[in-house]
Amino acid sequence: MTDLAKKTTTPQQVRAQQTYERILEVAAEVLAEAGLDGLTTNLVCKRAGLTPPTLYRYFHDKYDLLEVLGHRLMDAQNQVLMGWATPETLRQPPQALGHSVLALFAQVLELTRAYPAGVSITRAVQAVPALHGVVLESHRSMAAALASVCQEAFPQARPERVRAMTRVAIQCAYSLMEMLFDEPEQPVELVGEGLARVVVALVDDLRP
């Protein structure tokens, strides 16, 4: 995982923790209102009632802010995924598995839209080349965790195939979610059904 300590200083004292969280809270608000280009450390300081030196004690620039916000959002999304991913879930009959995937996709979408600046954070980490590693790290981590569950569900499956299939599933899910944010006119239910068909086909390829 990315070592955030190299870029930011996570405080230990209560008052410093409160300041740290306040900075992130305001940064998310500014991002949601003004977008990536409108997010500046000076504006965050003004909104939070802090001086720039106080902010720079914890974050070097706005990209440090976005990195922490991105990690937190994807951690929340990944917790939902890993709460779903069990051997029993994956061994369900295809139709039941498809319904389960559709419900999971809807849940992650709902979480992201309800998360403070969730959609804006998703767009920002995708738009900034320096932050692509945040997304890639999350996807690889979840694919590895899901592969472990798949291997438990289907122990006869070749590990390299399991790893490839789970990585494809993760990439498809997040890409489709991003597409829905960029193209809100797309029918969520049909997009989710498309993802469900892909995941069912990938899992079927692992069944004995």
Rank of each mutant, 00 (worst) to 15 (best):
L66K: 08
T8N: 10
V188R: 15
L146F: 13
V125G: 03
E88Y: 01
E25H: 14
C150T: 09
E25R: 15
L24N: 10
A114F: 01
E137L: 01
R197P: 00
V101R: 04
M165K: 11
L39R: 03
T54Q: 15
G192L: 05
P11D: 11
R72W: 00
L136F: 06
P155Y: 01
L190I: 08
E193P: 01
W84D: 01
I23L: 12
V128E: 15
E193N: 12
T2W: 09
E152D: 14
K7Q: 13
A144V: 05
T41F: 01
R113F: 00
L50W: 05
P155T: 01
T41Q: 13
L43E: 15
V134R: 09
S120P: 00
T51K: 15
R207F: 03
P208L: 09
E160D: 14
T8G: 03
A114L: 12
L131K: 09
L24F: 06
V14W: 10
V26K: 10
Q156M: 13
L73M: 12
A201H: 07
V162A: 08
G70A: 10
V199L: 06
P53E: 11
G98C: 05
T166A: 12
F181D: 12
P94Q: 10
V149L: 08
P159G: 06
L50M: 11
V199A: 09
Q12M: 09
A27K: 08
A106E: 13
V188A: 15
V108D: 08
Q17R: 15
V30C: 09
R207E: 09
K46D: 14
T54F: 07
V108E: 10
Y115K: 07
P159M: 07
A143D: 05
L206Q: 07
T8E: 10
T41G: 09
T10Y: 13
W84T: 01
A48T: 02
A127R: 13
A117E: 02
